[in-house]
Structures are given as C-alpha cells and as structure tokens.
Nucleic acid binder design. Sequence first.
DNA 1: GCCAACGTTGGC
DNA 2: GCCAACGTTGGC
Length: 139
Amino acid sequence: MPSYWLLKTEPSTYSFDQLQAERQTLWNGIRNYQARNYLRDFKKGDFALIYHSGKEKAVVGIAKVLDQAIHEPDPDGGDWLQVKIASHRKFKKPVPLQNIKTLPELKNLPLLKQSRLSVMPIGEKEFNILTQTLGEVCD
DNA sequence: GCCAACGTTGGC
DNA sequence: GCCAACGTTGGC
C-alpha cells in the first residue's frame, strides 16, 4: 500500500515544470525537524502531491517516490534527509488553495493548519478528493 | 506591506 | 529551563 504525501515548494525556487523537464530529482534542502521526520517514512511507490506556494497557491502535479529517503550531506553537520522523486502526472488545471479550503473533508489537511510545514502526510481519501474530485490529471 | 504561526538563538 | 528578540514562511 502506497502512502500519500504533499510536498510544498516555492516555484521560483523549484517548480513542478522543472521536475517534469528533468524527469526526476533529489528533493532536498528541507531544514525542519517535523518535515524531516516525515521523510523517514517515505518509501518506494508512494505518491506526493506537489504544491506551489507564494503567488500560485495551488496543487499542480503528482510525483512518485522512487526510493527511501537518504542522508543529505550538510556542511553545518546537520542530520537531514533528501528523497528521489519522479514526475508522475500533471493536473489539467492547478487545484487552488481557495478551492481546497471549501471542502469540509479537507479541513484537517496540515496544509491548511500548519502553513509552514513543507512535507506532510495526507490520507488516501484526501488524495483521491484532490486528484479526482477537485482536480483532474493528465493522461 | 502586514501579520500569524512557528522555529531559533542567546541571555539569564 | 525560561523567555524575549529575532528570523522565516506563507497567506492575505
């Protein structure tokens, strides 16, 4: 059984389009313990929604987790993780935060409650609502 | 540009 | 260990 996640990124720093162009990337630079701890639970075959913060404020695509998270070298000696993901599907239209906030079934998403958390778990039902009810993905 | 919600740092 | 000051993220 795959687990489902949401990864936040500021698109001017790294966008889903860049991920699609590169096919895969090492998702790194996470410097928050709660987010790092979630990364420990990433496993091959999991899915991660990609959310663009800042001006866009929308879920834009789905990535597939290619392997467990691995240690990220840090010049400051920190104990951090990075994870290899691949682009999987793009949404036909981005799913705006504004729409996400209107659904009672999604009101417990950490996205809405913990604005600073950049890696968060989501339930399978929540994932399905986001990808099938609110949004539609490309083939 | 402002503010809320954290997280971090450093003095005590 | 507490708390004030400061920094960062991110929505509005």
